[in-house]
């Protein structure tokens, strides 16, 4: 067994000091060590998107990122978005549009959806679908997910214009 390494990372605003085996990926670290089980592991080779979380302010695949390599970094998992207004809008739209069924892909979908809303405010349906191509859903057929994201984009646009 390889010696554990000491790391210090910020997870959902909290400083975490831990000793990790270098081979432990970030998804296992947040799930098994910090009990933040909202991050899901699917394919564990970077294809399905279920493990997508925010790392240093940008979406990343936690299953192919080593916890040890995140020393000094900042992680935000789905649990860290409880009070985030964009995520609040997305949660509501996902419920209204039936954008989830079993829920397995949902944490990763929401992280990607938030990135789309903030980075691409003018995304049309084709662009939303393109951006979602790295997150697999086996229940919904994507129609509800695309609609939910489009709805949040549209409502943010109309509220940016102001009333009247």
């Amino acid at each position: 067994m390889t010696l554990k390494k000491s790391i210090r990372i910020t997870v959902n605003g909290r400083t975490v000091d831990a000793d990790v085996e270098p081979r432990q990926h970030l998804a296992d670290f947040v799930r098994d060590e910090l009990l933040l089980t909202g991050t899901h592991t699917g394919c564990e080779h970077g294809v399905c998107g279920a493990c997508t979380l925010y790392l240093d302010g940008k979406p990343a695949r936690s299953c192919i990122t080593w916890a040890v390599a995140c020393d000094g970094g900042e992680v935000r998992t789905i649990e860290g978005f409880d009070d985030d207004p964009v995520m609040g809008e997305l949660r509501e739209a996902f419920s209204a549009e039936h954008a989830l069924q079993c829920g397995y892909c949902t944490p990763g979908m929401l992280v990607t959806a938030r990135d789309i809303v903030l980075r691409l405010p003018d995304a049309d349906e084709a662009r939303i679908r393109l951006e979602l191509s790295g997150n697999l859903c086996r229940c919904t057929g994507y129609v509800g997910i695309v609609r939910a994201i489009a709805k949040v984009l549209a409502s943010r646009k109309s509220s940016a214009r102001g009333p009247g």
């Binding site: 085996e21 081979r23 990926h25």
Partner: peptide
């Protein structure tokens, strides 16, 4: 799927 053990060094 979990990686086999390895050591890690940041250069």
């Amino acid at each position: 799927m979990k990686a086999a053990a390895f050591d890690y060094a940041r250069a």
